[in-house]
Nucleic acid binder design. Structure first.
Lengths: 355, 355
DNA sequence: CATTGTAATGAAAGCGCTTTTAAATTATAA
DNA sequence: TTATAATTTAAAAGCGCTTTCATTACAATG
């Protein structure tokens, strides 16, 4: 049905080896023959079968990207960045969401391996990948979470100090009673952020207990619902700190739903993407995570591994230090004369202006 | 390096044909042998090579989805829907953005064809696909735009009457001077919407000329910039009608930037996704486009074509009639006693409540 | 003229699998 | 025991390509 290299060879009156050489611009082919082959190709509307080529070459020009949920805005921007770079290198992306379900993650990973993708970028569900039997030779980079077993590269953010910084930011605006909304503690990132929070609590001698921590779920809706529910029963804290993009979005949504005004009624800070939260009014103070940068580094790291074509000897860990971008979500003026903790003053390097 | 079926066969002391039968649960294999083979598979951590299988079977279990931009919220939701259904059927998605560039679209499509995907879902840039030489046998469905050449299936919205309905909605709230923000007229959908607008203008005897139409671009930022620029120079109309999701988002962004209040200063309506615009305050009156539904129909149509495995004889065209969901973005009360045009009363079947 | 070198082409193997066909084994009946 | 059938396994072809290696054609050289 679809023409093969054989048909082209027959039409051009040459051997299939010669056609292959024309297509791949390899070896010696005289100009006269080359043109005849090219003509036959366009006449037959021949498209080389990448499957056959992949089988022969053991390269698929395919990158698998396995994430929590492509409809998560932050995640999607990472994918978009990877896609941009992959396009340049003529790679295509197989993208899968695991929707925070271990079973889906396992299945998707299995499919990617069977499809012999050249590399994998993974934002895992949190369980380690040991039982998934990913071979060491597979180029693979973790994103936003560390590899527990330290077998593979990862690109992550500095979480602990940044997290402490956000607490101190709230503190510096005079707030004392907080609610912390975080994600699943299976993720190394979330655990680190909590460590930072507890450190700050201890340093600042805050009166905060376990009741002020809320694991709100994995979807925007469930988070918003949890927050609404919490606020309804526990009343308003002075400040909310949402430890990740989704938690922050869910929190804002909940406040919106409940007509709670920021910063008049409550202060909020969080980790997130400035393009999303910077344009809000009032703009939200965030530890800025740039998904484009994450995608770029992830792609570059992966690409290098693919090119190297040998097992990972030394897994690399890229740590991006987020800057705290001041918004107006904590009230306009920090308490004057308040000691700004050292760590905080380092983090605040940049202020976001909405055009 | 990676174990092959041969290694498994050797380890289990059987032929590769037998191993294949075990993997595919086909033919007769005695229980004793089956267990031996299964053991060898897990011992070797063998993963069948989908490439080799694809070559043999001429099926890849891969669906290509070529869209304007995966980071477009509306588009992304379509992808998400397709992904959900594809997962059930054990298909993977190769997703590509063409970013509204003809060259990228062509290249991506070429890659998908070479990779022998089992089917393609495409939201084209608007140029017709004639010169892309997609073979008729390829299962392919257009989304949000018609196939000019009527070779392939498509799932689209009813645009003309719905569009007229939105104009009439603005009219019924007492507004007379409008700005129409639309996308590229290469898209059949956009053209149809403009036809509807002109019909309504003529029916309602509105005094509106070409200056009130704005082709604002293809990215959120460019649209927002165009709108800001227009409003700065031309002043405020009474109502803005943005003909698609992106135009609506850009418009809202621009109004936000300029501190123009809705509906106090201006009324807005548009085509869009209720999940996005329904939660805004004030909620925006939209002709509701449900990306999940679009994705579902697109996938089902495609899947049927893939299963049928024969050339398209009768291309189908699925037309979804959007309902106009009333928000508060045009002012609360339509002018009483105003004749509600027939078409409008049909469209308004549903009202959106935010929980 | 024979020899060597160079450029261009073709023949053939093989990538890892599925699937058809043939062969081997076992069970059943004569 | 032998013939026949039923069941199970092995052998081999081939999917469409790349790539190595051998071959051919031709010009240049001694």
């Amino acid at each position: 049905m679809t023409p093969t290299i054989k048909d082209v060879a027959a039409a051009a009156g040459v051997s299939i080896g010669t056609v292959s050489k024309v297509i791949n611009k390899s070896g010696f082919v005289s100009e006269r023959i080359r043109e005849r082959v090219l003509l036959a190709i366009s006449l037959l509307n021949y498209k080389p079968n990448a499957i056959a080529r992949s089988l022969k070459q053991s390269k698929t020009k395919l990158i698998g990207i396995l994430v929590d949920d492509i409809s998560n805005l932050y995640t999607m921007k990472i994918i978009k960045a990877v896609e941009n770079f992959a396009y340049e290198m003529e790679y295509n992306l197989i993208s899968c969401s695991h929707n925070n379900q271990a079973e889906q993650e396992k299945k998707a990973l299995q499919w990617l391996l069977e499809k012999r993708v050249d590399g994998i970028i993974i934002m895992p569900i949190g369980s380690d990948l040991d039982d998934l039997n990913v071979p060491n030779i597979m180029p693979l980079v973790f994103v936003e979470t560390k590899d527990k077993n330290e077998r593979f590269d990862s690109v992550i953010h500095e979480n602990m100090h940044t997290s402490a910084g956000l607490v101190e930011h709230l503190y510096s605006h005079g707030h004392r009673k907080f609610l912390f909304i975080h994600g699943s503690l299976r993720h190394s990132a979330e655990k680190e952020k909590l460590v930072g929070i507890r450190q700050a609590i201890s340093n600042l001698k805050l009166d905060i207990d376990e009741q002020n921590f809320l694991d709100a779920g994995t979807t925007l809706d469930s988070i918003a619902a949890s927050v609404r529910n919490y606020l309804k029963h526990e009343g308003l804290p002075q400040g909310i700190y949402a430890t990740n993009h989704l938690a922050l979005a869910g929190t804002i949504r909940a406040l919106w739903d409940m007509d709670i005004r920021v910063p008049d009624d409550i202060a909020i800070v969080g980790f997130g993407d400035i393009d999303t939260y910077g344009i809000l009014k009032p703009s939200v103070t965030v530890a800025k995570q740039d998904p484009y940068e994450v995608g770029k580094i992830a792609y570059e790291t992966l690409f290098e591994r693919i090119e190297m074509d040998k097992p990972i000897s030394e897994p690399k860990e890229f740590v991006i230090s987020p800057k705290i971008i001041l918004g107006a979500s904590c009230g306009c003026h920090p308490i004057v004369n308040h000691r700004v903790p050292e760590v905080l003053s380092h983090l605040i390097n940049e202020t976001f202006h909405s055009e």
